[in-house]
């Protein structure tokens, strides 16, 4: 049990690298790509952590949908200049200091780990743990009400997104809820300044 698992080590290190790359990249598209990579790595992490269903869901939802949406918007909005100057006095250094403390504290807490399973059986994870069947069972029995509520939230968010992005001064054709259509009507961005 001791020592770092090599697969986890590699994936975790890559996850950190991509995360840092995401926040440091000057180009938003690059950021988004780092993010996609990060989400992919997270999916692998989920696999390693006995959550195959979540891994797939992560891939589909985050990498397949959310980040595509982000990329769409980035392209829709066109040129994004990297804003390097810091207009808020002291923000950068204060933030770094606070983040240092917070990160240290969080890592310190995380290093404590979590108590093992109540039954004491830490080593063996049942093969069905985290499988779609198990997840489906949980979602549609114990958590069915939250599940429905969440689906309602999605619906509301969808409508909300359409309403928010659908400005009157835009031509009828544009529906921000469906960025693909909107994309056609906008100016063409360029990747480079």
């Amino acid at each position: 049990m001791s020592g770092l698992d090599p697969a986890f080590l590699i994936v975790g290190a890559l996850a950190i690298v991509t995360a840092v790359g995401m926040i440091l990249a000057k180009n938003v598209v690059h950021s988004a790509l780092f993010m996609v990579a990060h989400f992919g790595l997270t999916a692998v992490l989920y696999l390693l952590l006995s959550a195959p269903f979540l891994a797939a869901a992560q891939l589909i939802v985050y990498a397949g949908a959310i980040m595509v949406l982000v990329l769409f918007v980035v392209m829709l909005l066109g040129r994004q200049e990297a804003l390097l100057d810091e207009p808020i006095v002291g923000q950068r250094w204060l933030a770094l200091a606070a983040l240092g403390v917070l990160g240290a504290a969080l890592v310190r807490v995380a290093a404590l780990g979590v108590p093992a399973a109540p039954e004491g059986g830490t080593a063996v994870v049942p093969p069905a743990f985290g499988s779609p069947a198990a997840m489906g069972d949980a979602l549609y029995t114990q958590w069915v009400l939250p599940f429905e509520v969440v689906s309602l939230v999605l619906l509301v968010a969808m409508i909300g997104a359409v309403v928010i992005a659908h400005f009157q001064r835009r031509p009828r054709n544009e529906k921000a809820g469906n960025p693909a259509i909107a994309a056609d009507a906008t100016e063409i961005p360029s990747p480079r300044a």
Partner: peptide, 16 residues
């Protein structure tokens, strides 16, 4: 691999 990963490591990774 899944069976041998101690929880503290993913937690620390998540914290970072």
């Amino acid at each position: 691999l899944a069976a041998v990963l101690p929880p503290a490591q993913p937690l620390m990774l998540a914290a970072l």
